[in-house]
């Protein structure tokens, strides 16, 4: 049985569970808002309302989409910490363990690690704080941490004030590529968009299957291994016959891309990885 952890409002969880239902994959869903309320766990079992307890030993894999701390009292906090311990150390097969997702807390930290691979370049990136600057070549500005920021403005000649640390990164025009890598399976898509940040395009994006060079694929798998990630969504840009690495998202919202493809390649890869025991 696959254990799915997340929140009801998460569309990715919805898409994954829909896939499981459609293909008769056995799963149980833990709504993190209900942990310590209607859903609980102990050393041996999970307890769901109106159902028989599920033994931890019956769980072949855990799909972890812990994105945000729910409001909690002391007991629920205690349950969440216990769950973290299970995810980080006790379940054999977790995509992804919380401790491995933390590289995304710092984009420059991740960029430094990614710069060790040679099939892509890293855009010129600055970290700036408490400074007023005048921009002289096209840059974008984005959050330094895993907090999402919309990147739809390209600064060209403006003055800009930086207070809290943020990234000022060279603007690279070109084709956006999202690569989902789950264990050894790679699914890459190209995104043709009119917006700088395709996630916030006013118009429909064109999404198509993209064939990556073998070395880029190899480097993405090696990067995942370095970061400890078994599933990631790597953002690349292809410009002037060169690949640029932007970031590796450890909890990728893959459903949006998959809905445009002919097959649920990514859900299939996730189910395959989570259904087999790892020893």
């Amino acid at each position: 049985m696959i254990l799915v952890l997340g929140q009801c409002s998460d569309q990715v969880i919805g898409a994954f569970m829909h896939h499981c239902v459609k293909h008769s994959v056995d799963f149980a869903f833990v709504d993190l808002n209900q942990l310590g309320k209607s859903i609980d766990m102990d050393e041996l079992y999970w307890f769901f309302p109106g159902q028989s307890p599920v033994s931890h030993s019956d769980i072949t894999g855990v799909y972890n989409r812990f994105l945000d701390w729910p409001k909690q009292n002391k007991y629920q906090m205690d349950r969440l910490l216990s769950l973290f311990d299970w995810l980080d150390h006790r379940y054999e097969n977790v995509i992804n363990r919380p401790k491995d997702t933390m590289s995304n807390l710092s984009k420059p930290y991740q960029l430094d690690i990614a710069s060790q691979f040679f099939s892509w370049s890293i855009p010129k990136t600055n970290i700036i704080m408490n400074t007023q600057i005048k921009i002289k070549s096209p840059f974008i500005c984005k959050s330094i941490s895993s907090e999402r920021s919309i990147v739809n403005q390209v600064y060209r000649q403006e003055e800009k004030a930086f207070y809290e640390p943020a990234l000022l990164q060279a603007y690279i025009p070109g084709l956006n590529i999202r690569v989902h890598a789950c264990d050894d399976v790679i699914v890459a898509v190209g995104i043709q968009s009119d917006a700088v940040d395709y996630r916030y395009s006013r118009f429909e994006n064109d999404i198509f299957m993209y064939h990556l060079p073998g070395q880029v694929e190899k480097d993405i798998l090696a990067l995942n291994r370095t970061l400890g990630l078994r599933f990631s969504g790597v953002d690349l840009i292809y410009h002037n016959k060169k690949y640029y690495f932007l970031e590796a998202n450890p909890s990728p919202g893959y459903a949006y891309f998959e809905s445009q493809l002919s097959r649920p390649y990514i859900s299939e890869a996730l189910v395959s990885s989570l259904s087999r025991s790892i020893h």
Binding site: S106, P108, D112, I127, S143, I144, S145, S146, E147, P165
Partner: peptide, 18 residues
């Protein structure tokens, strides 16, 4: 506040590893 804290943690994580 969370964004602010994470921005500093994000910076420190990079800085400390340099």
């Amino acid at each position: 506040q969370r964004y602010y804290l994470h921005s500093w943690l994000g910076f420190l994580m990079w800085y400390a590893n340099q």
